[in-house]
């Protein structure tokens, strides 16, 4: 049967990985290709690369980097950050990306999701959803890197983008992100139940048990983490063996 996926996420600025990374056996941990290759060897199931640069010039650098990544790694990867139009996606897919992740642009223009699905197929369209809970609003969707609250309730939005053709949802809980206190099991579970496409949980991973919880209790299809892996607080093979012992099906 299909296994649960473990996905390290790399933030890219100007063609380099950010968030200081400490690896003894990697010559240049700032080199996304080298870091990605290492994760692939470690048994990561997929990788996500998020371009956090701002200018058009830097975006061209990112598109070149995507090609370099595709040349070197033999597992699937998703790229995201600043995608606003069909043409942006075309370049990234032609350069060898397997999936693209759209976020704010889908909120500005939900039709974009439909256009991307029609042009390239749902299988390569991931919609990233940043969500935050407050007592007053419940779980709401946030745009522009989590800075702007939108009118969308999270579960409704997840249904809407799935109907438009999203092939996967990358759900990040802003309340949990960076806390290392565990994934947001409630909203992840609600979204996973509401939609028919795979859901990737993101934000809050701090221990191996957190991964087990998000797979078993919230029925996430995949789980993503960044600094936990980059700082080697947790290594992919150790995590996967733990999950397997818990009876969770993973690729080893």
């Amino acid at each position: 049967m299909l296994t649960k996926r473990i996905i390290p996420c790399l933030d890219i600025k100007n063609g380099r990985t950010v968030k200081g990374v400490r690896f003894e056996n990697i010559r240049d941990a700032g080199d996304p290709v080298e870091l990605a290759s290492w994760y692939a060897e470690q048994g990561a199931d997929e990788l996500v690369f998020l371009d956090i640069t701002a200018t058009n010039e830097e975006r061209k650098t990112f598109a070149e980097l995507v090609k370099d990544i595709a040349r070197h790694i033999d597992i699937p990867f998703t790229v995201g950050g600043g995608i606003g139009a069909v043409a942006d996606v075309e370049v990234l897919l032609q350069n060898g990306a397997d999936k693209v992740s759209v976020n704010s642009a889908a909120i500005r223009n939900p039709k974009l999701v439909e256009e991307l699905a029609k042009h390239f197929g749902s299988q390569c369209v991931t919609v990233a959803v940043d969500t935050k809970y407050t007592n007053d609003t419940g779980w709401k969707v946030y745009a522009r890197a989590g800075t702007v609250e939108t009118e969308h309730a999270t579960v409704d939005w997840a249904r809407q983008i799935t109907d438009l053709g999203a092939g996967e949802i990358l759900l990040t809980s802003m309340n949990n992100d960076g806390t290392k206190a565990g994934f947001a099991l409630d909203i992840t579970g609600d979204v996973a139940k509401a939609v028919s496409v795979p859901v990737v949980a993101s934000g809050g991973a701090g221990s191996m048990q957190h991964f087990a919880d998000v797979f078993e209790q919230a029925h996430a299809d995949a789980a993503l983490a960044a600094s936990l892996f980059h700082f080697r607080e947790l290594e992919v093979p150790v995590l996967k063996h733990f999950l397997k012992e818990q009876g969770i099906d993973v690729r080893i």
């Binding site: 049967m1 296994t3 092939g167 299809d221």
Partner: peptide
């Protein structure tokens, strides 16, 4: 969930196309 997306096991392998592989080896689907 559909798409069927991720790593799944191969079974009942036949023909030289799968030479060197073992039953239950993983491949990536979308």
């Amino acid at each position: 969930k559909v798409p069927h997306m991720g790593w799944n096991r191969l079974e009942k392998l036949q023909t030289p196309l799968f030479g060197g592989l073992q039953e239950q080896d993983y491949v990536y689907y979308v």
